[in-house]
Amino acid sequence: MRSFQQRLSDFDTRGIRVVAISVDPVETNQRHCRKMGFTYPFLSDAKAEVIRSYDLLHRGGGPKGADIARPAEFLIDSTGIIRWVNLTESIGVRARPEEVLQIFDELSGKVAP
């Protein structure tokens, strides 16, 4: 999350919006974003409906057996088509912004700046 904030300008120059989604309520996201200085949208899917529609529900994965999202990243183009998916095998290993930027540049046939 922090690494994406640090590379946010690189996403901006390509017109790509960085969006975080979890079951956290709006208040938690607001507090967390203020504390960490996150400026991109953190969306609250408290009922996990979107998480379910993306088949990313981790049943009982949260505190006190709460249902949460499993970590995953999707790159979506401006027509709404998914161009890249990353379903990590380990909670500790997440997609890096550099990786996403490189894939985006390769897909759009441009040389990375």
């Binding site: 999350m1 994406f4 996403f11 390509r14 017109g15 790509i16 919006r17 960085v18 969006v19 975080a20 989604i21 979890s22 998480i51 993306y54 990313l56 981790h58 994965g61 949260g62 949460i68 999202a69 499993r70 970590p71 995953a72 990243e73 999707f74 790159l75 979506i76 183009d77 401006s78 161009r83 909670i91 997609a95 996403v100 985006f104």
Partner: peptide, 8 residues
Amino acid sequence: GAVLIFYR
């Protein structure tokens, strides 16, 4: 486009 980051 957009990058959706689902997190725990």
